[in-house]
Each structure stands twice: as structure tokens, then as C-alpha cells.
Design a protein around this nucleic acid. Structure first.
Length: 277
DNA sequence: CAACCGACCTGTTCGC
DNA sequence: TGCGAACAGGTCGGTT
């Protein structure tokens, strides 16, 4: 569920709540949520550790700990991280709980159990295959053109490939392609210079606007901020989840199809496959 | 290299 | 109303 804007928002807001705190106890309710090390080692190495940094890489959340180790968290489809008082009401999907020195708890809740945590001194071993950050200033239009060059993949699966760019998922890939006026089935190596420039601009605009609105909370409310409030970008979605509704740009009806086993939404008028632009 | 499929999981929505 | 099928923001590994 959470993509780059959601994890970026979490990193910022969790940072305010967690940096300077320390972990006094850890409870692992669902051992498989801890990918490494084994849960016993995970708990003993975390107990008593201070949190000095919270950041994001792709869709991973990174908590920097005193002593140089990192706690990596990937929320996958249904993971949620919230901070609350000790007497917070019980959640049947709680998988891991971190007890903090100020009486608060960091809750990891995850109904589908896909989310994973890793405690490691070598985060690059887990993050090494990730492509560049879409919002990195070094990712210029020229650099994006090099990335797309020679790739025969269709744009939609390419954008969600974490080795190509880090952090895009199903929602933002659809929104970015709509903003850029590019068909999701268009082959990456067929883009003109001008089309790459549009894609580059769309990447930055969509992601920056979504971060400014603190991410997308859909109807199921699975993604929320650490204090439980929703993100506000859902109302700004142009195509995702809007099949049959008019395109905000041209009023043609949004189409939903299936690409690489995932849903894809686009405007058949604004995003023409035949256009070489 | 590119595409597709099943796994991994549970909860919610859809269609008959 | 009831019930099973289909579907969900992600990723991985194996096959074609």
C-alpha cells in the first residue's frame, strides 16, 4: 500500500516522535514479521537502544540506532506504524510493539502479514538493488533518458520496477503516466526527448504534491499517519480507482485494464498508444 | 531481457 | 440475505 510519498511522510512524522527516544522493550507477536536476525536476537539487540535518525529509501523506512545498526521496515501491502500511549486500544493485527522510554509505544500492525523488519549493520545488503530516488536532483531528464534507453519494457511495469526507480507503486505510476500523457503500454525505448522531459516533470510534480498532502489514504483507511490521521492526496487522484469517471483534463471516461497482473488506469484520450510524442 | 504466474496472507467487495 | 469468487497499495522466485 504505501509508496514513496506515504513512506516519506512516515519518515518525517515518525522522526519527530522517535528521534532522541530509546527503546526499553520489544514484543514480537508474529515472528515472521522479523526477517532478520532471528526474533530473539532482534529483541535483545534492540532493547535499550536509542533512536538517532529516521529516513526513507524507496519504500523502506530506516531507523538509525545508537551503535550504528539500522532497523529497516517495509510495510508491503497492509503494514501500518503508529505511535501512541501505553493504554492504546488493542489491535488484533499488531505484529511488533516497541516500548519507548517516554511511555509511548511504536505499533507495527499488518493484517496481511507481508510486511518485514530487518535489524542490520549493513543496510546496503538489503537496499542494494534499488534504483535511483525519483526526487534526487541528480536524476535529471538526461539521466532519466539514459535509464530508459534500450529498455523494451512497457512503461507501467518499468516504473514500478524498484531496480529502475525506487519508490513508485501502482497508484503513483498510473498518476504519473496520466500527468505525462503517456500510455502505460508504451515501450520505454520509444519515447522522444520531449516525452522523457514530460515524464521527468510528471514524476516530480506528482510525488511532490502527494508528499505535500501527506500521501494517499484510500477508502479502507489502511495507510494513516503515526497519529492515526489520514493523508489527503486521495482527492487529487486523476485516474487511480476512477474507472468510468471523466478525465479531469479532457472529460473522456477513464479506463481500467490489467497489465502484468496488476490494475492499470488511464485516459484513452490523453494517453494514446499511437502518439509518438 | 521481458512477460507471466503462483506464493505469501487476510479482509473487503462484488456478483449471482 | 448468503456465499463463494475476485480483488487489494508489494515483492520474490521460477518458468516460458
Amino acid at each position: 500500500m504505501p509508496e514513496l510519498p506515504e513512506v516519506e511522510t512516515l519518515a518525517r512524522e515518525l522522526g519527530m516522535a522517535l528521534v532522541g527516544r530509546s527503546i526499553v522493550a520489544v514484543e514480537v507477536c508474529w515472528p515472521r514479521s522479523v526477517a532478520a536476525p532471528d526474533p530473539g536476537t532482534f529483541v535483545s539487540r534492540l532493547t535499550g537502544r536509542g533512536i538517532r535518525d529516521v529516513r526513507r529509501r524507496g519504500k523502506w523506512l530506516l531507523l538509525g540506532l545508537d551503535g550504528g545498526e539500522w532497523l529497516l521496515v517495509h510495510l508491503r501491502m497492509s503494514g501500518r506504524l503508529t505511535v501512541g500511549r501505553s493504554d492504546a486500544p488493542g489491535d488484533p493485527h499488531t505484529r511488533v510493539v516497541f516500548y519507548l522510554d517516554n511511555g509511548q509505544r511504536l505499533h507495527f500492525s499488518d493484517p496481511r502479514k507481508f510486511g518485514r523488519m530487518v535489524l542490520t549493520a549493513y543496510p546496503e545488503e538489503w537496499l542494494g538493488d534499488l534504483g535511483p530516488e525519483p526526487l534526487d536532483p541528480d536524476l535529471t531528464p538526461e539521466r532519466l533518458a539514459e535509464i530508459l534507453q534500450g529498455r523494451r519494457m512497457r512503461l507501467k511495469p518499468l516504473l514500478t520496477d524498484q531496480r529502475v526507480l525506487a519508490g513508485l507503486g501502482n497508484i503513483y505510476a498510473d498518476e504519473i503516466l496520466w500527468r505525462a500523457g503517456l500510455h502505460p503500454l508504451r515501450r520505454a525505448d520509444t519515447l522522444t526527448r520531449e516525452a522523457v522531459a514530460r515524464l521527468h516533470r510528471a514524476l516530480r510534480e506528482v510525488l511532490e504534491e502527494a508528499i505535500a498532502r501527506r500521501g494517499t489514504t484510500l477508502a479502507d483507511q489502511r495507510y494513516v499517519l503515526p497519529d492515526g490521521r489520514p493523508g489527503e492526496f486521495a482527492v487529487s487522484l486523476a485516474v487511480y480507482g476512477r474507472a468510468g469517471e471523466p478525465c479531469p483534463r479532457c472529460r473522456a471516461l477513464i479506463v481500467r485494464t490489467r497489465i502484468g497482473g496488476r490494475s492499470a488506469h488511464f485516459c484513452p484520450q490523453c494517453q494514446r498508444f499511437e502518439h509518438r510524442g
